[in-house]
Simulated assay, not measured.
Amino acid sequence: MADFIKSFRNLLKGKDVVFTLIIINVMVFLVCALLRVIGLLFEIPYPDLSVYFEVSSNIGIVIRHIWTLITYMFLHYDVLHILFNMLMLYWFGIIFRSYFTPKHMVAVYILGGIAAALFYILTFNTIPYFIKLGSSSMIGASGAVTAIIFAAAFYNKNLQVGLLFFGRIKIIYIALFIFVLDFIALGGGNNTGGHVAHIGGALFGYLFATQYLKGRDITKWFNMVIDKVVNLFKPSPRMRVTYRKEKTDEEYNQQRHNTEEQIDAILDKIKQSGYSSLSSDEKKKLFDASNK
């Protein structure tokens, strides 16, 4: 646990948090893929652990596996799935990073992902069309990435980026185009839950940016909690305690008298033999006495 907290702390303090998030996603994907391939090649029964990491639209399952609100956003189905999400995270994460701190990046990614999951659960349990689809599950970083995209877009609506075949275009138009595509896709398809999650992430990113422009940081509480958790595992600095015995008036006067006698003896030596006859220790004592 301590190692995890240390890694998370390094993530928050990291200068290139975009690459750190990408590396975490890629490493999780590679480990899962490796276990799956080994199980297939050697015909080793590979238990389906996805239920413990993917987020479900079933409220009962989510309550029992509450951690899936976070773990799902670091898992991906296949190479194309993670490739597309990581490219989007890189492109828009670089823009986000130019406006905000690494802590903001991590907070918006995680809280945006949680918001996407909660919106997905809410939608599949309240909207008649989605209720008919029955219970489903979801993995992927797209909801969290969409939060990053919308946070960057609505923080600086006039920022222009270059797109192949389209030239320079405002980032706000790209974000709105993504939102429209997700909304249209709600009417059917194989990834309906994913599109719902994208909208949830987009709403969080929009809320973060608009509130930040008003001087309110809605991720502040999250970073405060993380800092407190990190400090629990941070070793306390060792305090060095020293004791100094106070001198009595008699001891002080005696020491002062001895010092004066030593200085008088040094001065007499200078009169008789000159300053050059003094030893280095005598010169130091004379210098210290002259500075008091």
Rank of each mutant, 00 (worst) to 15 (best):
K132W: 03
I94E: 02
S50T: 15
L49D: 08
L89R: 07
L278N: 09
Q254N: 11
G193W: 03
E261R: 13
M239T: 12
I24F: 13
T126D: 02
N158D: 15
N25W: 02
Y129C: 03
N85T: 05
V79R: 03
N190R: 14
F166E: 06
F53E: 05
V28D: 07
M86V: 09
Y243H: 10
A107S: 12
L163H: 04
S142Y: 08
Y52I: 11
E54C: 08
F204N: 02
F222C: 06
F166C: 07
D48L: 13
I94R: 07
G187H: 01
Y46D: 15
F84M: 12
S142C: 03
P237V: 10
A2E: 15
S135A: 12
D249Q: 08
N258F: 08
K170W: 02
A115H: 00
N231R: 09
S279M: 10
N291H: 11
L111T: 04
S7M: 04
F204I: 12
G215D: 08
S280L: 10
A116G: 12
N258L: 15
V145P: 09
L40D: 15
S142A: 07
L278I: 10
V28P: 04
K6A: 13
L286T: 07
K245E: 11
Y120M: 04
K247W: 08
V225Y: 08
L35V: 14
D3M: 01
L267F: 09
T210I: 10
T146C: 04
K214S: 13
I263C: 10
I270G: 12
N156Y: 01
Y72S: 09
D288Q: 14
D281S: 11
P102I: 00
S98D: 00
A117K: 01
Y52S: 12
K285M: 13
T126M: 03
N223D: 14
G14V: 10
